[in-house]
Computed example of a mutant assay.
Amino acid sequence: MSKPLINQLLIATLLVATTSSVYAIEYRSTAKHGVILYDAPVETSDKRFILSTNIPLEFLAEQGNWIRVRDRDGTLAWALKSDISTTRYVQVNRLAEVRKDANTSSTLLFKVDRNVVLELLQDTRTGWLKIKHRDGAVGYIRIEDVWGA
């Protein structure tokens, strides 16, 4: 190959690599019971939902004292920054198994129903999340069984 062609391929490869960078999705959770989600970043706007504590939300943007979020159903809304925590929780999508270790052959600790909220302790980056149930039980759940990770 000619040197100009190699240079063009190298530049094209670098451009693809930089433009296709994976952007990490950032999640937060409601900090208290009764968090109101609004249509716009003002308290006089329409109220969309009221959420319980520890509900995971996808963080999209920040504007003053407001945070733009998306819920599990894809609804976009605004919440007061003071009502949102960086402590991570996940919400179960369907009946799921929690294992002692991060593999399917590990001992089954318990099953967890849809919509149960679990504290996220660690993303193992292997498709498993280390979680904690509100009763204190700690184990591993498959990432595809939850929303908010």
Rank of each mutant, 00 (worst) to 15 (best):
S2F: 03
K3H: 14
K3T: 14
P4L: 03
L5V: 13
N7T: 12
N7E: 13
Q8S: 12
Q8A: 15
L9S: 08
L9P: 00
A12Q: 11
A12C: 08
A12S: 12
T13W: 02
T13F: 07
T13R: 13
L14K: 11
V16Q: 06
T18H: 08
S21E: 02
A24F: 06
A24S: 10
I25N: 09
E26F: 01
Y27S: 06
R28S: 09
R28M: 13
R28F: 05
S29D: 05
S29E: 07
A31K: 15
A31W: 01
A31L: 09
A31M: 07
A31S: 11
A31P: 09
K32Q: 13
K32M: 08
K32S: 15
H33Q: 14
H33L: 11
G34M: 01
I36C: 01
I36F: 01
L37Q: 07
Y38D: 04
A40F: 08
P41F: 10
T44C: 00
S45K: 11
S45Q: 07
S45N: 03
D46I: 07
D46L: 11
K47C: 12
F49Y: 11
I50K: 06
I50P: 01
S52E: 14
S52Y: 09
T53D: 13
T53C: 12
N54P: 01
N54W: 10
P56A: 04
P56N: 05
E58F: 01
F59G: 04
Q63M: 13
G64T: 04
G64I: 05
W66D: 09
I67R: 02
R68V: 00
R70Y: 00
D71V: 01
R72H: 06
D73S: 15
D73A: 12
G74A: 03
T75C: 01
L76A: 09
L76P: 00
A77D: 04
A79F: 05
K81I: 06
K81N: 14
K81D: 08
S82D: 10
D83F: 00
S85D: 13
T86C: 02
T86S: 15
R88L: 13
V90T: 04
Q91Y: 00
Q91I: 15
V92N: 02
N93V: 07
R94H: 12
R94N: 11
L95D: 09
A96R: 09
V98L: 04
V98Y: 05
V98P: 01
R99L: 00
R99N: 05
K100A: 09
K100W: 02
K100N: 03
K100E: 15
K100T: 02
A102C: 11
A102L: 07
N103V: 07
T104A: 12
L108Y: 04
L109H: 10
F110C: 06
K111T: 15
V112K: 05
V112R: 03
N115L: 10
N115R: 12
N115A: 09
V117F: 02
L120H: 08
L120S: 04
L121F: 03
Q122I: 06
D123C: 11
D123Y: 11
T124D: 10
T126Y: 01
T126Q: 14
W128S: 05
L129W: 03
I131L: 01
H133T: 07
R134G: 00
R134E: 08
D135E: 10
G136N: 12
A137C: 05
A137K: 13
A137P: 01
V138F: 04
V138K: 06
G139E: 04
R142G: 07
R142P: 03
R142M: 11
E144H: 15
V146G: 02
W147S: 08
G148K: 01
